[in-house]
Design a protein around this nucleic acid. Structure first.
Lengths: 232, 232
DNA sequence: GACTCTCCTTAATGGCTCTAGGTGAATCTA
DNA sequence: TAGATTCACCTAGAGCCATTAAGGAGAGTC
């Protein structure tokens, strides 16, 4: 833990650069986040940034990791403000949507980073951040499964079971494939809906998707043996 | 209908340019579709392309429209190969997924074009193409509604009803808000799942999403009063 | 044969990423 | 405290990109 003067300087500059990148993203859009523009924003010349980030991609990666962290922490904080399984799970889901809709540019950025599979290595920053993000939802359901198992299908498709068995293994086999299948069905509907909303795929029909989201929760909770509770 | 020799030449060149753009997209990724690269591909120098497209954005728009058209026609053709409402609807859904998964780059391109709302004008190329695309699914359900109405909720959220009433009006009020709500719930789950799949949001858990998609259909059809039928 | 229109060229502007080489100041070492 | 080292930054420049401007070659038309 060497926090020399220089080290602290460097950390501060790094933070300033990431903040500038985020400011550019939210005010001028994703294509405005260029090495040159960010450098100008913090008052240095383009190439100077290469002393802090190896290139554009690494800068983008660092900012993405920030967003992931922020979103994940928000979900965890929302969860920790409650103590029953139902309320904790609902808090996680609503925090996800709240952060996504109040930070659309950042959420789009996160989403886009998962589209291209450039660093599919299981030890990359992005991969880990994504795992941790999804893990909040999954962890809460795993706990639910331990304390109060929910009903699972007994006729799961063979190919599906095999795929989910592999995935369950990467999660330490906390859940059997059948339970993981229920979790994934819920997650796909939940995360899918939030993505559709924030990525403007439903604008033509809706102006406010909160009731749609709440109805989705109302349909999902019974699948986990829980009872829906109104927000607020 | 003036198809002079020159005119035909021009049309052919236009087609060649769009084909080159598509080739670049699928082989080298979306960021490789630059004016210069496309021009090189068809054997002319950069600025020459401006005789065919006003700029990069217009080229992108034209290519996007091609993809939309191709996808839409595929869905229509699949539909027209069957004659019962159930089979027609299933054919549409499966054709959507088939095209998306077999043309991932093109589907991502389409999806991305809907994220940024640059041309929200209701007469823009993209908007119309998007309407027509969604209209295949929606039209099939509208016909279903006419011939064999499906059950709808009688306690629809007030804000939701109002939003859907407006949307229904833009569709010529073929469906009441309550029915439209059911349609949208189905569409969101279906389209959402296909997007998640093609945009690599589920890679960490699944390698083959066909069984998930079929299960989704199996769950959705009863909501429309129809009975699921296996593919093939 | 002259005129026009289309298609294409090169040149130039100004943005971008990123590399290379250099400068001055802070820091470490003896 | 003097010299070596490291660090943070600079300018210059190569090679992309989009786009505009200016002009030339050739086909179609009068």
């Amino acid at each position: 833990m060497t926090t020399s003067r220089r080290d602290r300087q460097r950390q501060q500059t790094l933070a300033e650069i990431r903040a500038a990148a985020r400011r550019l993203l939210t005010t001028k859009g994703p294509e405005a986040v260029t090495i040159n523009a960010v450098a100008r924003e913090v008052g240095m010349s383009g190439p100077a940034l290469y002393h802090y980030f190896a290139g554009h991609e690494e800068l983008v990666g660092a900012v993405t990791a920030d967003f992931y962290r922020e979103l994940t922490e928000e979900m965890e904080a929302a969860r920790d403000a409650h103590d029953t399984p139902t309320l904790r799970l609902l808090a996680i889901c609503r925090a996800l949507r709240r952060w996504a809709t109040s930070h659309p540019a950042e959420f789009r950025w996160i989403f886009a980073s998962r589209i291209a599979p450039p660093h599919r290595q299981p030890d990359s920053q992005w991969y880990l951040a994504g795992q941790r993000f999804g893990g909040v939802f999954l962890g809460q359901i795993a706990e639910l499964w331990r304390t109060r198992p929910f009903p699972v299908p007994d006729d799961l498709d063979e190919s599906l079971r095999e795929q989910l068995r592999k995935y369950a293994a990467t999660l330490g086999d906390q859940l059997p494939p059948e339970a993981l299948h229920v979790v994934m069905k819920c997650w796909i509907r939940l995360y899918g809906l939030v993505c559709m909303e924030v990525l403007n795929q439903l604008d033509y029909a809706y102006s406010d998707l909160e009731p749609v989201f709440e109805e989705c929760l109302r349909e999902l909770l019974p699948l986990l043996g829980l009872e829906y509770v109104n927000p607020g």
